[in-house]
């Protein structure tokens, strides 16, 4: 399905607009984790890869304040604060997440733009 389009679906390069336009099915077959946050950082998107890495099903995440419930280790100046401070954001950082309480080195891509309501965190192990 994805192969038939010309859109770029790679962790490093997928565009925010393309990411925001994906269907749930399309997001779920991506090899990296996708977390989409709405106003007040409410979790609106939590794809299958992210769910598998974190050990939590989307139903238990969606609708909750992400940085208070699941992603507390990103609730700091390195991640959450950047969404507050930088309206236009597309950056990749090395990070450590506690996936299933195991400190796990990951790469995070933070994406935000004034033209799109939802901001995204992509995670790659």
């Amino acid at each position: 399905m994805l192969a038939t389009t010309s859109t770029d679906y790679r962790f490093e390069t997928i565009a925010l607009g393309a990411l925001d336009g994906l269907t749930g099915e399309q997001r779920d077959i991506l090899s990296f984790g996708v977390i989409g946050l709405g106003a007040d950082f409410i979790a609106e998107i939590y794809n299958a890869t992210e769910s598998r890495l974190a050990g939590i099903s989307p139903a238990r995440v969606l609708g909750s304040q992400f940085f208070l419930n699941i992603g507390i280790c990103m609730n700091n100046y390195l991640v959450a604060q950047r969404f507050e401070d930088e309206p236009e954001l597309d950056t990749i950082i090395d990070y450590v997440l506690t996936l299933r309480m195991r400190p796990t080195p990951v790469r995070l891509r933070l994406l935000q733009s004034p033209s799109i309501a939802r901001r995204y965190i992509l995670t790659q192990r």
């Binding site: 507390i72 280790c73 990103m74 609730n75 390195l78 450590v96 997440l97 506690t98 309480m101 195991r102």
Partner: peptide, 11 residues
């Protein structure tokens, strides 16, 4: 093993 708050504090 570490939970997210531990990481947040140490970071």
């Amino acid at each position: 093993i570490a939970n997210p708050v531990a990481m947040q504090l140490l970071l």
